[in-house]
Amino acid sequence: MRGIFSRRRGSARRAGADPIEAFWRWWADDGEELLTEATRAGDFDAYVDVMTRRVRAIARGLEWETRTGTDAEHTLCVSSGGDASLRPVAERWYRASPPPGPRWDFVPARSAKPDMLESSITYRGRTFDLRRTRVHAAVTRAGDGFIVSVYNPGFTGQWDDEYGLCVLLLEWLLGEDDVERWVRRVDCIARDVVDSIPAAELPARVADLARTLPAPDWLLMQGTLGAGDPILVRVLRPLRWIDHPRFDLHTALRVPFDADGQGLPRPAALDDLDDLEDSLVKALGIRGMLVAAETSRGVRTLHFYSDSEDQNGRDVLDAAARAQRAVTARHALDPGWKKVRDFA
């Protein structure tokens, strides 16, 4: 790894010229040549400030780094640094990038770099022998991820200093997105535990779990509300925002229906609800997705996610609300899918 650079977290600019478009115009005019020459020369001072300003103009908090490329000579990564609110921005930056060439390719998240665990590094003024790192990986109760405890003999229990290194180690082992996908909690431990494993074995443990999980499908759940009213919930499993990083806009579409005495739809109303749902999913296409549906007390709430910068996706749902007076659509930015976390 040749450089990692970041700024404090914040939000993307939404006014004025598109900063992502401006970045790639600069890249085509001057940036690629500047970064190529400076990287080949190992002259960080020649480009760090310039690149940091350009990336910061897209969104405060984005991180960037250069690496030796796999197919190209170099790789440029612009990363959210684990911040869910910035991951869609990094994805848009990547999707707007030019095709990879012989000199540069581009990625929107740090890829795994397990060879880093074969070295010693200096982190916040202290040296750590990463070859001695061990982890304890406990499968969560839901069976869809891990609680990972990270141990290194250099840890002192000063977690404010060492937690960031634990996360960085996991990103080197799994890649940034797979840390979000599979790791539910990260703990730093100052004493090793009996059933820990060498850190290098963690990717295989994750791959084994992934192979056991069923293909994405709908799960139907039934329960009761506080007053005893029944509620039906249909939810897509696995429910992972990281698999759809551009979809940061949550839309709750509330659809009243003709209900029976329990507040559930009568047969004719159920057909109408299903027809509406099917038509919306078809109209959205690849612009968005339905992830959950709640049915109770005479209302079905459909939970959709789409790209907040794609007005056409939002328009599909707004049109459905305008077509029926009682239907309402409520939109909210939700890049980590917190609105549906209870269903996960």
Rank of each mutant, 00 (worst) to 15 (best):
T156W: 12
Q158E: 15
G157M: 03
S196M: 11
D161S: 15
P230N: 14
G226F: 06
L232Q: 09
L219V: 15
M221S: 14
L213G: 00
V179C: 05
D195R: 03
A207R: 05
R185K: 13
A207C: 03
D208Y: 04
V233W: 01
V194P: 06
L169S: 01
I197F: 02
R211C: 05
M221E: 15
L169G: 00
D187V: 02
G157S: 09
I231K: 03
V167E: 14
L174C: 05
L219W: 05
L169W: 01
I189G: 06
P214N: 07
L219S: 12
E176Y: 07
A190S: 09
P198S: 09
C188N: 00
G164L: 12
L170T: 10
A215Q: 15
A210P: 05
E171Y: 02
E201T: 00
R181Y: 09
A199M: 02
L168F: 06
L213I: 01
L219A: 12
D229F: 06
L209F: 04
D178R: 15
E162L: 15
A227H: 00
L169A: 07
P198Q: 15
L173P: 12
V194H: 14
V183M: 13
A215H: 15
T212P: 03
E176C: 08
L168P: 00
E162D: 10
L169H: 02
R181T: 08
D229P: 02
P216Y: 05
V206R: 05
L209T: 04
L173R: 08
A227R: 04
L173N: 15
L220R: 10
G223V: 00
Q158I: 10
L225N: 12
L165F: 11
E176R: 03
A207G: 00
T156L: 09
L220D: 02
E201D: 10
M221D: 12
D178W: 00
R185L: 10
P198D: 14
V206E: 03
A227F: 00
W172R: 09
V186Q: 07
G226R: 04
R185W: 14
D192Q: 11
W159F: 13
Y163N: 03
G164Y: 06
E162W: 12
C188E: 08
V179D: 04
T212D: 07
V183A: 11
A204S: 10
